[in-house]
Design a protein around this nucleic acid. Sequence first.
RNA 1: GCCGGGGUGGCGAAAUCGGUAGACGCAAGGGACUUAAAAUCCCUUGGGAGGCGACUCCCGUGCAGGUUCGAGUCCUGCCCUCGGCACCA
Length: 804
Amino acid sequence: MSPVPSYDPTAVEACWQERWGREHANEPELDRPALPFYNLMMFPYPSAEGLHVGNMFAFTGADIYGRFKRLQGYDVFEPIGFDAFGIHSENYALSVGTHPAKLIPQNIEAFRRQLRRFGGMFDWRHELSTTDPRYYKWTQWIFLQLFKAGIAFRKKAAVNWCPKDMSVVANEQVINGYCERHPDTRVEQRVLEQWFFRITQYAERLLDNLDRLDWSDSTRTLQRNWIGKSEGAELIFETPAGAKIAVFTTRPDTVFGATYLVLAPEHPLVDQLTASEQRPSVNAYRREVQGKDVVSRRVGDKTKTGVFLGSYARNPATGEAIPIWTADYVLMEYGTGAIMAVPGHDVRDFEFATEFHLPIREVVRTGEPLPSVSQDGMLVNSGEFDGLSCRDAHRRIVAWLQAKGLATPQVQYRLHDWCISRQRYWGPPIPIIYCDRCGPVGVPEQDLPVELPFIPDFRPDASGVSPLARHKEWYYVKCPSCGAQGRRETDVSDTFLDSAWYFLRYPSTEFDDRPWDPQRTKTWLPVSTYIGGNEHAVLHLLYSRFVTMALQELGHVHFDEPFPKLRAHGLIIKDGAKMSKSRGNVVIPDAYIQKWGADTFRMYLMFLGPFQEGGDFRETGIVGIRRFLDKVWTTAHEAAALTPGASPALPPDLERKLHQTIKKVTADTESLDYNTAIAAMMEYVNLMRERGAGSRGAIEPLLVMLAPYAPHLAEELWSVLGHEQSIFEARWPAYHAELAATGDVEIVVQVNGKVRGRVTVGRGATEQQVVALALRDEAVRKFVDGKPVRKTIYVQDRLLNLVV
RNA sequence: GCCGGGGUGGCGAAAUCGGUAGACGCAAGGGACUUAAAAUCCCUUGGGAGGCGACUCCCGUGCAGGUUCGAGUCCUGCCCUCGGCACCA
């Protein structure tokens, strides 16, 4: 037998990558595909550190699925792109002192090289970058459609402001109330006019549709919690002067226990309801709250503070006058910005009432000490409603107050409208022109894109205005509506808007006159399978769903859910911690690919643990995958050395194992259980080598199953076996149940549930046959010990349990 | 605090419906080949006890109970851990 050449992954991989490129192997026919399959993975942010092992883990898992679909006969479209705008890039550019316009293309180039090297089945004709004017032209176009439809609107909102930076800082950049970049400077709250998208209008639909999406339960739960639907009622508390204070509550059954009211410090009625002698302290309190930054107001110290306004309102249930307070534990953004405080049955109200000596009344008896929040109880101290359950009382009290015009059933969401304004440089300018006469006017579509001007020093300055305002030729522009002197909007849009529609662009990247081609979109969308990390379970996925819904309503797309099937992969950690630059534990795959080859490294990452759970990166164990691939290499070469006619029939046990393997690898690859699929292929190859039966008929189906995992190696060996076409033109092996289930089976014999012996019988043996055999087994007899068998439990082809 | 994962050998893990716990792989130990090493191949490897031996028995899936002929898997109550949300009324 001729000697087998040694496996040199570097050479093999370079050769096949070159050939795939030359033959356009990964570029499906987009206009007339027979069986379109849109295999999407979350596009990366091209960081300066390069593609790290977590990216590669995600992309490998997604690529395996795409290649698997390809082998099943689909025309698979697997695009890739770059999410390159955003504060992330801008901050990095600031820290190294290089302009992002220069930095980003370099990073993208490095990513491209790495992405080619790992062997992804990417259609590079359709690469995109969100920073490309040909792309963000359409990001701006989407903004304009939403603006025209009234879904984009302006409103005031609080932001974090660093007085040193003279700039808005993101919540993540505020550390305990101090600026990340200036640890001695306290961040303040500032209120700015900003652009919002009315996502709350879609809350109910975003929630309802979740039921029909093929997503993991955990991701759907995250979205549900984020949307945060609460059902309850709005109740009216009137003041003697006739002011009406509306509060939202999920517990109208506890209204008899409402002993005071609290308004958020920003509540518009605070001024009016403040008695003159209380005005100084109320104003001081409001100033103090405003001085806090957005972050510490929300997550910081939770000790209760507040001030009495000096006035009273009538409890609609009891009719008694209760004091009105203001306190920052009540948030203006949720509900009506005012609450009825029920200290007996709410922990926060209880703390506040204790602090300020306000009355605490029990109105629901639960058997637990106050405050008790359980709804398993009976009403007390609630007049005619005493004795009712919370459920019944909820309904009846709302009806009773509604009849008096003091209550309305209501639903509230935790979800807020999406603020898309960023007072930053590195993003798509929001396409709006302000005119003193016409107000905010959309940039006419034919003038898109509003290109981001090159500003060499893009840092914010002492003016406190976004850097874009300093570029005068850009900033001043004629009003498209009346022709008068206007000014451009200087904020850019949120990166999440860039990524909320990229999947629509991929199939249509060659068209510059439309955001997406209607025919292409009909053919390819919605996405067949979307694979990405759970860190995007909420924002990115929710925003994409919302944008798609809005676009459908406006007639631009034909579906309302972009990702009917989503799979979330796990996280690769290092030494028990998330990989991050600050921890210094980021693993870069390049050196491993260099040393072991992309195929080995791909499979190693998939073998590390379940794809959907992730795992801890440790380099021990890579060698096990390499040994496996070496075995496959040797076996295939040996099989190739046999003359074609001499390929012997598979031994029966190997044939059985082959079909069991096909069954398992098919099912496991489909469900992304790649670690166990790899284990099954290893078992098969081990058996093949044990039998010395590495024939063509035995190895070829294995190579096809291995191809999604180790595409270069599979191609090479396929060609060594004499095939001229790519292995990806081959078809996934067929599973034959009758071939998987041949031969004898071993049946476990238990006595009283403990394993005491084993008997070998033909498949499908009857219970009587197995019992008879089992009772002849010495060990079994010993434990039956002459006692009568009271009962037998028989599981076909698996187990017999004798109860004595 | 609320919501969701998860806890199995020295390590990563597997066990599709309640049916042989630890597949597959790493590491470790022993052996073969070799002048030697690497590579490769073979054997052993959850813990404990017994036997010259083919083997045999007991214990074992975070903890405590329960259901069942049978529980890693189901139920009840805890502990630990990871992730998300967090003064959301």
